[in-house]
């Protein structure tokens, strides 16, 4: 039998009397920042990697870029997020003498990691658009990049919005490993609250609840964007 009154007391003690809600808000801020900016960096990086991959390999430069893209994706998809963070924090950071806040470091690494995944999503999106579209653009005298950005990418993005939403959700949940490089994210905030009184039950339950609420909000957001982008479609 669960003692609800005791659980409630424990909740108010940890989150209100001891000021736990402040840490939660700060952690929520860090988590959202990492996920949102990580996704933005990821989309930009991923888009260029995807274009490089679908680009016709007619010259030496394009071939080199293609090899670079393959290696990039292999590195960032081939190692766990935690390992990337740790290598970045304890090895690369002293190596290049970077002194920024670990939050920015986490944003950059999450962005680069996400870029590898988004590049594959984006490539799928670009290849789902009939190659005739690009050829038509080229035939009327547009350059490859103009045809890409004006014709193919806008249609591709519309197709991949659900998958991008998926990637965003993964990113939000993965931020919980940012605490390995001292970022005070949502997970770390709840861990601290638990440690203060060695009572982890309520903090972890509330943590799960907050993640679910976050994800539901994102899901609704993605739905709205999809509906907005479907406006120009024929309704059958």
């Amino acid at each position: 039998m669960i003692d609800w009154a005791k659980l409630w007391n424990s909740f108010t003690f940890q989150f209100i009397d001891k000021g736990g809600y402040k840490e939660v808000l700060r952690g929520l801020g860090a988590t959202v920042q990492i996920a949102v900016f990580g996704l933005i960096i990821g989309i930009i990086v991923g888009m260029f990697i995807a274009i490089i991959k679908v680009m016709p390999k007619y010259n030496f430069f394009a071939k080199i870029l293609d090899k670079f893209a393959v290696v990039y994706v292999a590195i960032f998809r081939g190692t766990p997020m935690v390992v990337q963070l740790l290598v970045g924090h304890y090895f690369l950071r002293p190596l290049i003498g970077w002194t920024c806040d670990p939050l920015i470091e986490a944003i950059v690494i999450f962005g680069l990691n996400s870029g590898a995944y988004v590049s594959e999503i984006m490539r799928g999106g670009i290849q789902s658009i009939d190659v005739g579209q690009l050829e038509a653009g080229r035939a009327v005298g547009l350059t490859f990049w103009t045809a890409m950005f004006r014709i193919v990418i806008p249609q591709a993005i519309k197709n991949i919005i659900p998958t991008l939403g998926n990637e965003f959700i993964t990113l939000v949940k993965e931020t919980s490993v940012a605490s390995f490089v001292t970022v005070l994210d949502l997970y770390r905030a709840f861990e601290q609250i638990g440690y203060a009184s060695y009572s982890f039950l309520i903090p972890y339950l509330v943590l799960a609840l907050i993640y679910i609420v976050l994800i539901v909000i994102i899901t609704i957001g993605v739905k709205l964007i999809e509906r907005r982008l479907k406006k120009n479609e024929r309704k059958n």
Binding site: F37, I40, I44, T99, C100, I104, I107, I153
Partner: peptide, 25 residues
């Protein structure tokens, strides 16, 4: 599309810049 991309890029740079300034002040 180009304008949209530029806007996103500018926003990212601005925000990152602000973070950078506060973090490395």
């Amino acid at each position: 599309m180009k304008k949209f991309l530029t806007a996103i890029l500018a926003a990212v740079l601005c925000v990152c810049g602000c973070f950078g300034l506060t973090a490395c002040s």
